[in-house]
Design a binder for these strands. Structure first.
Lengths: 234, 234
DNA sequence: GGCGACAAGATTGGCGACAAGTTTGTTGAC
DNA sequence: GTCAACAAACTTGTCGCCAATCTTGTCGCC
């Protein structure tokens, strides 16, 4: 009896030592989320339970729970008795996501304008000026996107609406790849930049309603560009 | 050895025969969802795993999975090693839900106006006329709400945007109770009715933008009423 | 009498083993 | 040579057991 207990304890220790610390469900979800978002695993690829269990050195039950979370977020599809595959992004679905994103970001822009002191946006008046012009001229889209995401996060932060924040998060994690493909489309970065200047100006002036309308137009335009160049994106 | 196998098979058969068919995860989720939405179990009530396992005659593991789904939908809170309780609706949270609901339903109203043939809305021009007036006069709020929900479902159906549909669904399942408490507030039913007449009229005329704006105003007004009478609602 | 500590009971968490189903590879006949 | 049927290996689905943690009740001390 005591021998068995020792065996269990030993196993636990071994596992803990072997891979540093045992990964929690949340950790694994986060890792896989990033992989899917960055297309490290391509859509349609199969996610085997045993495979993942071996990689993360955790029991299969835990992987199963992870896959449940990923499924509820709509990142993977599970077919009974056949396993889990990374969801494919249908073009129609992307359009649906963009329509929803437009109204939600519009809402957040308006709320943020109401909640934040106007000086908050000076930083972005500055950034969306000369620096971003230079990024566009140099085709430095990485720097371009970094600034965008910073703006996005700041808006959500000041909107102070966790419900909207959660929903937008689930949209971003599905469309991250698409966003990167849209900005490199001809003329889109420049166009998006001037649209954002208008948004930020309205926010700085404290005009939430206008900022909302402009933000929605901005995303409708992005969607329209996507529609025109869909052959090159998906 | 073979005796053990027989035991297991016998048990399975017994379970299958005893309770008809074994409930699937989805079935149990649906049942609990309704209970929570209808306040059959009050917020703050504890949901014991063994208790539920006994009630539905399924292994505890399945209940665990069910609780996982309910948690990801935000219907329950799980405290490690202490169990699951039905989430309380904070007033602030309700306001956040209403802001998001306003823009999402606004979107759906606009899309539905664009997608559906105008005659689609004749049914509701009719219903929102004399019949609903009568319901308000008689304080028949149940009939009143039935018509509203029919309208809501029709809008979502014609909006043809599964993303928005899903998000609105998760909002409704949390605010169902609140909706019922708002319509009985003094004057709110009558006010809401006239607002809806305007919405339907715009939809019938094919003016999606106006319909969207009116729908958003409608929900902002509902929220405002809720704010004024918050003491009596929560 | 009240408060703190300890032990017993109960509940949740984690895991490995077994069962069911699917895919793949092989063998046989047409 | 091709197709179908069967078998074996592998993958997913289900379940019950054991460990960890919290709750509760009791006892002893201040």
């Amino acid at each position: 009896m005591s021998g068995r207990v020792v065996t269990l304890k030993t196993k636990a220790k071994l596992r803990a030592r072997k891979s540093g610390t045992a990964s929690s469900v949340q950790d694994i979800v986060q890792t896989l989320r990033e992989r899917i978002a960055r297309h490290d695993v391509s859509p349609g690829a199969k996610l085997g339970e045993q495979e993942l269990a071996a990689e993360f050195a955790v029991p299969r039950t835990r992987i199963r729970e992870v896959l449940g979370v990923l499924e509820s977020r709509g990142l993977i599809d599970r077919i009974p008795n056949r396993g889990a595959v990374v969801s494919r992004l249908e073009l129609d679905h992307v359009f649906h996501l963009y329509d929803v994103r437009a109204v939600l970001e519009g809402l957040c822009v308006r709320l943020a304008t109401e909640n934040a002191p106007p000086e908050t946006w000076d930083e972005f008046v500055e950034l969306f000026g000369a620096p971003m012009d230079e990024f566009v001229a140099n085709r430095d889209f990485d720097a371009f996107i970094v600034v965008y995401e910073r703006f996005r996060r700041r808006i959500i932060e000041w909107a102070r609406n966790p419900v909207a924040a959660r929903m937008l998060d689930s949209i971003y994690e599905k469309t991250n790849v698409v966003i990167r493909r849209i900005v490199i489309l001809p003329g889109r970065a420049k166009e998006g930049l001037s649209e954002h200047r208008a948004v930020v100006a309205a926010m700085r002036a404290g005009d939430g309603e206008t900022a909302e309308r402009l933000k929605r137009m901005n995303l409708q335009n992005a969607k329209e560009t996507l529609r025109r160049f869909q052959k090159y994106v998906l």
